[in-house]
Simulated assay, not measured.
Amino acid sequence: MEKTGITITKRKDGRYVGKFIADYADNGKVQYHYVYGKTYEEAESKVLIGREIATRYLSGRYITVEKIYVEWLNAVVNRVKESTLANYRNKFEKHILPEFGDVPCADLTAGKINAFINQKLADGLSASYVRDIFTVFKTMLKYAQDEYGFKLSLKSVVLPKAARKQIEKISDTEQKKLVSYLKSNMSLTAFGILLSLFMGLRIGELCGLKWEDVDFRNKILHIRRTVQRISSANGNRKTKIVISAPKSATSFREIAIPDMLMKYFEMFRDEADYFIISGTNKPVEPRTMQYRYKKILQSAEVEDHNYHKLRHTFATNSAEKGFNVKALSAVLGHSSVTLTLNRYIHPDRTYERRLMNMCMQL
């Protein structure tokens, strides 16, 4: 008999059988699923449960990547930083949606994703960036599977190996030239560069410093915020400056201020709660600081390099001078000592030889 769209019949052996639509074949033909029960009520209950599961599966089976993307973005908007959300949007709207936007999530295969990865590499994107794109995509697909009950096998996706470039520190000779120029042409910008070189501050952290972050009595600098430019959420490709919490939980930190720098904190000290590097209630944005740094390198006749090399140089110098690596990791705001060792510390042969000779002393 049929009741509320459910088909249940009694077999000759006395059992009841119920059927419901479980899926559709590629040619559109209906595929049924059958359940059995000793009583009508038991069969009916199994049909209702099975139909609910199948309906949810089918709705997810044909839902596209773009629709899931919008749903997923709304789910994470209150759990991630604004800059992280902007990063998600950028990778999806620039790379993933143009390729897969109208494709049902359940139809994605490792082969299709591998072809996508190879094309991005052929377009000139770095292996590291392509891996980041896939990581974000995979996060969204996990949400889709959890919500709609289908399964994707991504085990055969082959990610390119991201070869980490070894960044050399600024040479000792170039460091001396740069520091000499900065001290002879002292300004808030020059002071900021010294903070990055001798305290390892990220450029966004430097731009976010306020005078309230300086503990003059205990000679401590508090890292509490960062400044960065991100894409706007309205899709018009405009960008905006945001002031937010530091990169991670471990990036909130306190750093002892070296005596040499303390005199410059005293020199520029402002009772108003301004941003230190700008001297106003508005921060200098990172790309402006980068531009100013390039101009100073030219004036100081120091070989051109990017601003982040200051932080790398601080880390390497500290390690070479015997700074405890765990303490150094805390100063840099890293989540683990391993990150500090792998990313920033590349001692030269002179330092390595000195350590080897020390080990030989009995």
Results as ranks from 00 to 15, higher is better:
residue 141 L to H: 01
residue 198 F to P: 07
residue 3 K to C: 02
residue 23 D to L: 07
residue 235 G to C: 03
residue 125 L to K: 03
residue 353 R to M: 13
residue 289 M to R: 03
residue 275 F to C: 09
residue 280 T to R: 15
residue 273 D to P: 12
residue 196 S to L: 08
residue 115 A to I: 02
residue 157 V to P: 00
residue 2 E to Q: 14
residue 81 K to D: 02
residue 30 V to D: 01
residue 71 E to L: 05
residue 263 K to W: 01
residue 244 S to T: 13
residue 282 K to F: 12
residue 41 E to N: 09
residue 350 T to C: 04
residue 206 L to F: 06
residue 351 Y to N: 15
residue 30 V to C: 01
residue 197 L to I: 13
residue 292 R to V: 07
residue 257 I to T: 04
residue 93 E to D: 05
residue 324 N to Q: 06
residue 173 T to A: 12
residue 358 M to W: 05
residue 276 I to R: 10
residue 295 K to F: 07
residue 338 T to N: 14
residue 35 V to M: 03
residue 122 A to T: 08
residue 226 T to S: 15
residue 104 P to Y: 06
residue 294 K to N: 15
residue 318 S to G: 10
residue 63 I to T: 12
residue 134 F to V: 12
residue 269 R to H: 15
residue 251 S to P: 09
residue 296 I to H: 14
residue 203 I to Q: 12
residue 165 K to L: 02
residue 33 H to E: 14
residue 8 I to E: 06
residue 349 R to W: 07
residue 21 I to M: 09
residue 320 E to G: 11
residue 308 H to T: 09
residue 186 M to Y: 03
residue 167 I to L: 11
residue 291 Y to M: 11
residue 64 T to Y: 04
residue 33 H to P: 00
residue 281 N to G: 07
residue 78 N to V: 02
residue 314 F to R: 07
residue 57 Y to S: 04
residue 171 S to I: 05
residue 145 Q to G: 01
residue 75 A to Y: 10
residue 203 I to P: 05
residue 177 K to D: 04
residue 14 G to N: 15
residue 243 I to D: 02
residue 238 K to T: 10
residue 326 K to A: 14
residue 175 Q to R: 15
residue 237 R to Y: 09
residue 269 R to P: 00
residue 347 P to K: 09
residue 309 K to G: 02
residue 1 M to F: 13
residue 360 M to A: 13
residue 322 G to A: 09
residue 314 F to C: 08
residue 100 F to D: 03
residue 272 A to Q: 15
residue 293 Y to A: 08
residue 93 E to A: 00
residue 149 G to H: 07
residue 321 K to Q: 13
residue 117 I to H: 00
residue 180 S to Q: 13
